[in-house]
Amino acid sequence: MKIGITKLVDLRQAMPALAWWVVCSALAALFIFPIYLMVMQSVKPLDEAVAIPPTLFPHQFSLESFLALSGENGSINIVHHILNSLYVAIAAVVGTVVVSTLGGYGFARLPFPGRNTLFFAMLTTFMIPFQAIITPLYLVLRTIGIENTLLGLALVYITFELPFGLFLMRNSFATIPAELEEAAFLDGCSPLSALPRVMLPLALPGVVTTALFTFFASWNEFFAALILITDQDKLTLPVTLSILQTGQFGTLNWGILEAGVVVSAIPCIIIYLLLQRYYVSGLLSGALK
């Protein structure tokens, strides 16, 4: 009786179990279908990939689309652009994790005059979209002399992931009981040496979440990468796909484009499936606290 009441607004209660399975499975098919089509398209031979009418599953399996991205005959070398993306994403992850761990620790645990004001000022960056300051940002990078570099792009990504990272890490450190920290101080730790020895291991879930979000954001980012990087050589994956789309190297082949999409999307899906717990909990803590 009690269970029946507490689950009143559960849609499942409003429909028989079989109907629930049917509805959920049909929706699941809708969500998976585009991903299925993408993967299938990428393993068709090149001529089948542009066949009219299109085939819904490969009649013949082939890796031609991926091989066409190997950089031979002046085509796009996808490995090169994967490395560009990896460089930017890893630099952004390391930078964001280090800076927001230090900052989060400071803001949560080491009081100094003006601390709250400063934290608030940093959080205001949540309110302002980076799309609105991309033009002067480009000029700042040019003034420093790192315009059109992957390093510049990584620094920009670090800055735009920082508010979230600081927020998350501050919360992670704030929930650690003060007794643990005091014990460390009494055992002779300085405020700084208590961070790696005592505090950081306890805040590790926050670190993983920050790293995960920064990786996804940097790996997938399109707008800033499109504007700040102008050398084709230095393009990250998403912008490389737009080069494929324009068919700059001969006519556009939809098999090759979807092979590129697979290369860019599948790692995200795999990482999400492996680290789902951190991803979802981070989403909730970032959003609901």
């Binding site: 699941a28 969500f31 585009p34 980012e221 399109f222 912008v239 979807e258 999409v261 860019s264």
Partner: peptide, 16 residues
């Protein structure tokens, strides 16, 4: 499953 497309970037999803 319903969350599966979320980690894919907007650009990749658009190219799909």
């Amino acid at each position: 499953v319903y969350f599966l497309p979320v980690p894919i970037g907007f650009a990749s999803a658009s190219f799909l």
